[in-house]
Amino acid sequence: MSWRATARLFGAKAQFQREPPAVPPPVVLERSVGRSVAPVAEVRNLTKRFGATEVFRDVSLRIEGGKVVTILGRSGVGKSTLLRCLNLLELPTSGQVFLRTKCVYDNGLCISRKDLIGARRQLSMVFQQFNLFQHLTAVENVALAPIVALGEPAGSAIEAARSLLDHVGISARMLAYPSQLSGGEQQRVAIARALALRPAAILFDEPTSSLDPELRGEVLATMKQLASEGMTMVVVTHELKFAADVSDWVVFMDDGGVVEEGPVEQVLVSPVRERTRQFISSH
């Protein structure tokens, strides 16, 4: 069963309310000029500072539906911060963030807290440290948000959660607590948990970096499977081979922001920038 079919098991109640944007974003104009659909998410001229230190400046990025975007760059360059700005776990300093056609952040102005919570569900996140809820079993980890945040009945949410675990190959361990699972299993539960919200895209922040090399394969395989099923994904990773295999678009970040971006053949095979070249040859 594909994740879409699985997601359909959830009640109908969970449809997101997409209000018309307060300010019609330019995407709408583009559409009238012939662009087919709005991107799942988009940031424009995003700048983020922590106090006096600027992490990045003027970053613009489109996340198209059904595409896999990988973000590369050395440690500390702001990859996580960019992901966290995308779903507003972290507030940008300036710029704009769009989810679908809705402008959720515009130069210091953010949509209301309540709307923000709903907006975040469209982009669920998979973390480097898994961050599974330690006091809940695997299946409850997956079902918690549908039950609590979407208000679905426990019975159907848990059943759907089991199907999602099945989809990532660990329904046999559905009653295990995170501490009883291997890192690779935990991360696959985390992926199932992210799917449970039927997000428009999943954001992965170095999903395999804290795994032993022999456990990385199973997680990468699960991610490839999702990609082949058409899931929109944004992946921060150090796995260049994985990036080369699945990316539709590669973004390379260095001090101050995005240095180079483009399809795999450009960024990974024949990068234009010196720093990109150095980064790739050092991996």
């Binding site: 975040r120 918690l144 948000a145 919200l197």
Partner: peptide, 15 residues
């Protein structure tokens, strides 16, 4: 990380 995961999944602060 636990709080962050909860927020990223659209749970409100109280939830």
């Amino acid at each position: 990380g636990q709080r962050e995961a909860a927020h990223s999944m659209g749970l409100s602060s109280w939830q």
